[in-house]
Design a protein around this nucleic acid. Sequence first.
DNA 1: TTGAAAGCGCTAACAA
DNA 2: TTGTTAGCGCTTTCAA
Lengths: 338, 338
Amino acid sequence: MKVRIKDIAKKVGFSITTVSRALNGYDDVSPETKSLILQAAKEMGYSPNTLAQRLQKQQSDTIGLVLPTFSPRFSDPYFSELLAGIGNKSAELGYDLLVSTRAPGPQEDAYYKKLIEGGRVDGFIVVRTRIRDSRIKYLLERNFPFSVFGRSEDSDHYSYVDEDGYYGMQLIADHLVDLGHQRIAFITPDLGFTFADERYRGLVAGLQKRGITLNETLIMQGDLTQRGGYECCEALLKRSEIPTAIVAGNDLMALGAISAAQDKGLQVGTDISITGFDGIPMGEYFHPPLTTVNQPVYKIGAMVCNMLVKIIKDKVEVPEHILLKPDLLIRNSTGEVR
Amino acid sequence: MKVRIKDIAKKVGFSITTVSRALNGYDDVSPETKSLILQAAKEMGYSPNTLAQRLQKQQSDTIGLVLPTFSPRFSDPYFSELLAGIGNKSAELGYDLLVSTRAPGPQEDAYYKKLIEGGRVDGFIVVRTRIRDSRIKYLLERNFPFSVFGRSEDSDHYSYVDEDGYYGMQLIADHLVDLGHQRIAFITPDLGFTFADERYRGLVAGLQKRGITLNETLIMQGDLTQRGGYECCEALLKRSEIPTAIVAGNDLMALGAISAAQDKGLQVGTDISITGFDGIPMGEYFHPPLTTVNQPVYKIGAMVCNMLVKIIKDKVEVPEHILLKPDLLIRNSTGEVR
DNA sequence: TTGAAAGCGCTAACAA
DNA sequence: TTGTTAGCGCTTTCAA
């Protein structure tokens, strides 16, 4: 019932070879034959069998994206936007996007391996890099095409797009110090994530530059969710001397922290200042709106996808590095210390 | 450099066929031969070429998911959770998940067609159904496997999972009327979405049952985003007689509406009540926390994926229908009318 | 300008 | 129990 090249060949009375060539726009087919074939293909509703083409070409025209999730559920607006950026670009470039979710660990690595060895993908986009990232180590060793949103120790050896979290946190530090804050707490994601480490170091350096040392005892670790932010903030507010400002390592935790502060009866932006990092749309509509560092995630998705396709197609050997300078979005969750 | 069946055959001195059979666990291979082959395969690091297997089997072992987006960017926690549900389940069942994003319209339909005709997917999961949904019409006509999260006019003829939005809105209606609200506004998504229509009718019916008629002039249409909710609410609050309660068609718009009300200096939950629909995690951490109707989106994703695989594998002919009764989550964005 | 034939890597009907 | 052969649908080399 499906139309194959063979059927067209039979109908127009030419060989399979000629039909294939006409269809693929080779110019060693006479114009009449070509138009005859094209005409027939159209009438018969032909469309090529992608699987066969891929087998023959020995490439899958598919990009792999494995989203690392901690809990099976995950609900991060940040990722849906990233996904949209990658998805739209890959479609534009003619690549399928194979998406999966895996918790970090051996299973995750095995899955990368499986996809590669089965020939199911031509390259990977790696997101949310970690210190000593086994995925990157593996891909590098195999010399398999990939591009990365984020960085790690060996970033020199691969192509990546990243925002400058170190710089971004300095913007936060300056902003808070300008407002008079000194006793500043930090809710950090697991420092095994390079972005978290980056932001942490940026904050420390930014404060240092202004003569302030980040107090170790005011550092809490959260799991990147609102709940995590809420719980960390709650704990911080139980201290005998509470901080005047809380810096959260991402927006979701910042929003959770705001919520916790409010539940304690504090006025966020006056009694206490709270900052985020990412620039998710929700931050703008929170009450108070969140002061944060903006990351153009959608654009980043498109860029990192583009980068990968270049690597796959042109066999680019020299890694390309894009480091974006983020902007500070000052809103009402921060204010002068009192 | 890649190990193929041929290589194993050469090494162990059996035919390609025998190797294939041993690898696939057929029992017409002598135990010794079998273990010999398995051993060799392991040593040589063999893994089958998925593309070749698929071509031979004439199936792609791939599920298609085309997310409908309005703007190119989209940032809806609801979808990332749905995606996680689908993604984890499909991986568990051995299917690849091909994800793409498309704006509703002819391009979207063409993409479904392209994927089918290229043999790239074995079935689709259709989400966010619309009235006279052309995707469903097309899939039905072609008799191509698909399952749906949502419903439409012809739901009888296909398998779906949906939550009962009609019922859910009645819960909202009852809750608000119990609190004494009479002047109720509704911020609805585009009524071309079946879920929106469903919720709308549920609200009307629920209020009617309690003797209240939903005032047409208090119905606004928003685009499902916070911004949309914000703008609609802003407009509603400019009326000479403002509503005592605002029902939003989804959580994101509800959160936007809360934000708008607060910017007008209103105390949400006392001066005005606002409700959502979906149960995104953010609602719990908003200030005030959002009264809403909960949908187990992650679970729904898994269910609808499971359903599709059953259809693909077992050639199920009788459509399966799952309609979930949602729960009302009463939080502080609603309160007694004053 | 066209066609025959090989081959991508695998599975399966049939024969031995 | 094992092997021969054909074939999935396509592209491409080589020869005519």
